[in-house]
Design a protein around this nucleic acid. Sequence first.
DNA 1: TTGGCGATCGAACGATCGTACGAACCCACA
DNA 2: TGTGGGTTCGTACGATCGTTCGATCGCCAA
Lengths: 215, 215
Amino acid sequence: MDERPRYDAKLARILQVAAGVFAEKGYHRASIRDIAAATEVSLSGLYYYFESKEALLFLIQRHCFGTILERAQAELDGVDDAEERLRIVVRTHLRFFLNNMREMKVLSHEAEVLTGRYQDEVSALKRKYAAIVSDILRDLRGERDGPDLRIATFTLFGMMNWIYTWYKPGKDPGAEALASEVLHIFLNGFRSGAATEADEAEAEHGDGAPSIWRG
Amino acid sequence: MDERPRYDAKLARILQVAAGVFAEKGYHRASIRDIAAATEVSLSGLYYYFESKEALLFLIQRHCFGTILERAQAELDGVDDAEERLRIVVRTHLRFFLNNMREMKVLSHEAEVLTGRYQDEVSALKRKYAAIVSDILRDLRGERDGPDLRIATFTLFGMMNWIYTWYKPGKDPGAEALASEVLHIFLNGFRSGAATEADEAEAEHGDGAPSIWRG
DNA sequence: TTGGCGATCGAACGATCGTACGAACCCACA
DNA sequence: TGTGGGTTCGTACGATCGTTCGATCGCCAA
């Protein structure tokens, strides 16, 4: 019941095409007329599928974020080891990122545009996703000293979400290789405790940089 | 000669206030009328100081990027050790970032807006700055295997430039502490050789992604 | 065939945008 | 005191924006 295959399919196509337009020109610079031209739907015809430009952006972001959360949770299901869980999250994130770069660019770049309940709902998804990563990092760190969880989490997201600003398909490596590079840097960096840090600094450079976190 | 202290000072103030308006509302959503209100200069009066809205954004970005480059080069002067050079760059970058967050947000968030010669000139500054970091990383890596330089460079910039999306002054630590966290994760991760990584990768995906760093 | 409803459209409205133009202002210097 | 050029402003123009509204289309049930 309540199924409208025709409606749903066309809405999905509109969201996809509109995401491309927003990704290319930016949300504010792109006009509904641009989206009408790209989707081959008339200007007023579009408003049968969403009630405002902001609602259109909201639908794109919610669908995109919902899919990411779904996939991450599905891939994480049954896996207990913290390190393996982190590898899964990064790989899943980057796979989805590169396969849906236009949507992800809209998600990353137009994060502050939504207002009111639109913003509330997307922010809730965002917090949920960040909490998954943060919990993994807490588990991974264990009782040892280590980087602040909030900073480490956002730093990892920065490494991944910044990609849309420089990634060139064809030129740059695919999701798996990219995930390996990111995981190598982040994982080895995050796991190395303050003690290790001191040892390495001593052995290689004798630089005398003290422990960052102790006490 | 060619000095107009009154003109220069007022232009500088306009750039600063306009950067705040752009940071808050976004370049396209902010109107020249918003900037006129914020600067307390009349709408048409602003056009005595810049010839178009795009030129205004260009002046902001060039001034901001020019200052960063200047400071980085000054701080790096005379320092040879690669690791110390990286520490200096990250510290300088984050110090400037937190002290000029509005300008840096405009620089990061409105990177694709400029066109033509405006874009060319800012892109040149950006490449110059990225090359400094990339050269340091190459030096730091030496002859060993290690992450791809292009990816590592952009990954580091991602860690730093993503900050404007989550940083809360007062709540989050200052530039020095932030730089320590970022440097700890990135430096230890970047320096750790491929051997460690290979051990880890072995345990999981027979997926056919052998050595991460081809060749 | 016909009635009705989901789906689509053309045309227009008011608002806001970036920018241009000419007059008026202010102040150092003749 | 007058004058000229650097500086500031009020006003308006044309373009484009998001959104609305009533008419019309296509298709399936009666």
